[in-house]
């Protein structure tokens, strides 16, 4: 796991809405695209605040959920890479 700090790009907005059930979305407010999330991916993305490094984010994420740590680590790394590739998360912060 790396010690870089990431934050949500200003082109994106996280959304949690209470309809008949709770829905989680990520909006690209520039091109209008919408990504569907679930609680796990929403919580994960919300932890990237531009202050914590990726190690700290995973530690906090791991503390929030009960599951197989190795699986969580693989999922975390895969999603982190996807979000970096799509420039949803950007490098920066303190």
């Amino acid at each position: 796991m790396e010690n870089k700090v990431y934050a949500l790009s200003s082109s994106y907005s996280l959304f949690k809405g209470e309809f008949n059930d709770i829905k989680y979305y990520l909006f690209n407010i520039e091109d209008g695209s919408i990504y569907r999330l679930n609680e796990v991916s929403y919580d994960m993305l919300a932890l990237f605040d531009g202050k914590r490094d990726a190690n700290k984010v995973f530690t906090l994420f791991n503390d929030m959920y009960q599951g197989e740590k190795d699986t969580m680590m693989i999922d975390f790394k895969n999603l982190l890479q996807t979000w970096l590739d799509k420039e949803i998360l950007i490098t920066g912060g303190e």
Binding site: Y25, N28, I29, Y35, R36, L37, S41, M64, Q66, L79
Partner: peptide
């Protein structure tokens, strides 16, 4: 441990049939 949520595979999928409008949001 009792306060932890049950882990599920994270979902991240682009919606193909729906877009977001900043204008509609600010003012289906």
């Amino acid at each position: 441990e009792g306060n932890k949520k049950e882990y599920q595979t994270p979902v991240f999928e682009e919606e193909q049939e729906m877009n977001f409008s900043k204008e509609i949001w600010e003012e289906c």
